[in-house]
Amino acid sequence: MDPATLIGILLAFGSVFAMVTMEGGHVESLLLLPPMVLVFGATLAVGLAGSTLKSTLHAFKSIPAAVKGRTVAPLDSIDQVVTLAEKARSEGLLSLEADAQETKDSFLAGALQNIADGTDGDELRLMLEDEIHSKKVSDQTASKFFRSLGGYAPTIGIIGTVVSLTHVLENLSDPSNLGPMIASAFVATLWGLLSANFLWLPLADRLAKISELELDRMTLLMEGVLAVQAGSQPLLLRERLKSMVPPHTLKAGKAGSSGGKNDTKGTAQDGRKDKLKAAA
């Protein structure tokens, strides 16, 4: 789990509350129910109005994935593909059917099953590219929804302030309450800006980033399994796949390795690589 989103949002709101406290104000003066109901309720309502019910539900179902931020390290995917390449060279492509049934990754399982079934390489590439494209469109639907909320919220906050100021102008006969009433009126604008920049837009960016990493992983697996089908040499395949990964991402994945099953496979692969170099 990557807690970056939770940490960032909590620090952002904490900074605002800290500023209010340091200036001698009261946090309770910002936690006014009427403007918060207007800003959050109306923002969600216009977001729904500009989208579809299915897209809205899909967007909110994607929030746990954004919070958890689970991604697979590129080195783990590379090790997995290289292991499959070694198995295919020693036991044949048909042996990959067992791996297709064991893996929990539906994308990889489908690719391996098609290889075992003898699907043509060009046709398999088209199938996998279509699946990657469908995943991209689905992910963009969620991130675009929250980005639209980030655009609506500040304007809705201004609407709330205008409504409150109208009420203030109706009570000019009571000067003693004008100050608190005007201050309360601007709370709606504040929550519009806070919700947009501290919640909706970060969620949209987070979903877009998680999607980018997942699409990169799927592309890596696609190129890997197609190379396995073509009979690529495992060690050369490893170097080719590593060249597809940005250096900083590759290093981060290696440094963050937890020493699990995939890491053991990688160590074994490196050992075989060293043996081959020594034999040469």
Rank of each mutant, 00 (worst) to 15 (best):
K135A: 14
T71M: 09
A111Y: 07
D105L: 13
A59F: 11
V72H: 03
D117E: 14
L112T: 05
V72P: 00
E91W: 00
K61C: 08
G92E: 03
R70F: 08
E86Y: 09
L94S: 12
G121F: 00
E129N: 06
K68D: 08
H133V: 08
D130Q: 13
L57D: 03
D76E: 14
Q101S: 11
K68N: 12
G118S: 12
G110M: 09
A111L: 06
V46N: 00
K68C: 07
Q113I: 00
D130H: 08
E91M: 05
L75W: 05
A100I: 08
R89T: 02
L112F: 04
T103Q: 13
G110Y: 09
E131P: 01
I132F: 03
A66P: 06
G121C: 05
K54M: 11
S106L: 13
T71E: 15
G118L: 10
K104D: 15
E97L: 07
F107K: 03
S55Q: 14
V67F: 15
V46R: 02
E86F: 12
A73Y: 06
E97C: 08
K68P: 02
D120L: 04
L124N: 03
K104L: 08
L124Q: 03
V67S: 00
A111F: 04
Q101D: 14
A111G: 15
T71Y: 02
T119D: 04
L108T: 10
G50K: 15
F107L: 10
K54A: 15
L94W: 04
S95L: 06
T56K: 04
A116S: 15
H58R: 14
F60T: 01
K104R: 15
P64A: 07
D99G: 00
